[in-house]
């Protein structure tokens, strides 16, 4: 998750690099500097670039992590294209993403607009809405498997008490995935709220005041002043939440393990299952690479957008 917080630093890069040149008049720091950066460079590059290439090679092999690997060329990718389980994993992931991204952003925007005012207890409200974001997926999973347990869960007992039919929840193939989205929203909407709230507070009050003086109502101010100013942040959130949603795994592992009847198998679950349960590391790596290609494309598009906006 630390990656979450690193996105924007990239954008400021060019300016700071230029500024440091001034300070770089003293040559001769090379050995010291190399000693300083060595641990970070070895660990970071060794555990990113190296594995990335290794993984690419694996995806062209039949590798079971035990016997020597065999080169297969594009075979793994061809099999993936017709694998019904992978196909369903992609469908489930896309459905999860299609629900999670718009709901978290629209919900986050609504909450941020409501929270963007100076009233008593506002800090408490903000904290309460954000707190689920720091709760781990495992904790959420354990808590909600209990809340939504079909037999003993409190959710069904409340439904029964108010006279509504009880539900299967995680035991029902039609309800499990939407339920995962709902839990994802409970913990994930806080992130959107915090980001949008900060962006709202950055809008100069004069801008709104000018619009009101010109006779704009609340709706018009929102549409013509607030939303256009928020656009870069909204673009960031769309890309960011999409990347998060496409990688959903922990919550699925703790609550449904892909079930019932495979109705919640998502791409990363498929990758994990292939590589570490069925020992098809090559096949799993190929599936991971397909996902990674989409994720990388999303990150690059975001960067491109930020560059164009700056220029």
């Amino acid at each position: 998750m630390a990656k979450t917080f690193a996105v924007g630093y990239r954008a400021r890069e060019t300016a700071t690099v230029r500024r440091t040149r001034r300070d770089r008049s003293r040559v001769g720091g090379t050995p010291t500097a190399w000693l300083f950066v060595a641990p970070a460079v070895v660990i970071i590059l060794g555990l990113s670039i190296g594995p990335m290439i290794w993984s690419l090679l694996l995806s062209f092999q039949s590798a079971d992590l035990v016997t020597p690997a065999r080169w297969l060329g594009w075979h793994n990718y061809e099999v993936l294209a017709t694998d019904p389980t992978f196909r369903r994993a992609v469908e489930h992931t896309l459905l999860y993403t299609a629900l999670f991204v718009p709901l978290s952003i629209v919900g986050g925007l609504g909450l941020a607009l409501a929270l963007n005012r100076r009233i008593r207890l506002i800090g408490l409200y903000r904290t309460l809405i954000f707190v689920p974001f720091v709760v781990s997926a495992a904790s959420q999973g354990v808590l909600f498997s209990f809340v939504f347990d079909a037999q003993f869960g409190i959710a069904n007992s409340l439904l029964a008490r108010i006279g509504l039919p009880t539900q299967g929840f995680f035991a029902d193939p039609n309800e499990a995935l939407p339920l995962l989205v709902a839990i994802g929203l409970w913990s994930g909407v806080g992130f959107c709220v915090i980001i949008l709230l900060a962006a709202l507070q950055d809008i100069p009050p004069e801008l709104r005041e000018a619009a009101i003086v010109d006779g704009a109502g609340r709706g018009a101010v929102l549409r013509h002043v607030v939303l256009p100013t928020l656009r870069p942040v909204l673009v960031f959130l769309v890309v960011w939440q999409t990347i998060q949603a496409l990688q959903v795994f922990d919550l699925v592992y703790v609550t449904t393990k892909g079930g019932p009847l495979g109705s919640t198998v998502v791409i990363v679950y498929f990758v994990w299952d292939q590589a570490f349960q069925l020992f098809q590391a090559g096949y799993g790596a190929a599936a991971a690479y397909l996902l990674a290609a989409v994720l990388l494309a999303a990150s690059l598009l975001l960067r491109l957008y930020q560059r164009i906006r700056k220029a």
Partner: peptide, 21 residues
Amino acid sequence: AVMLATMVIPFQITMIPTFLL
């Protein structure tokens, strides 16, 4: 620049080789 670029590498493609390593 290279270290910056590694931030976009998703964990899913590094996890299998990291396990092997």
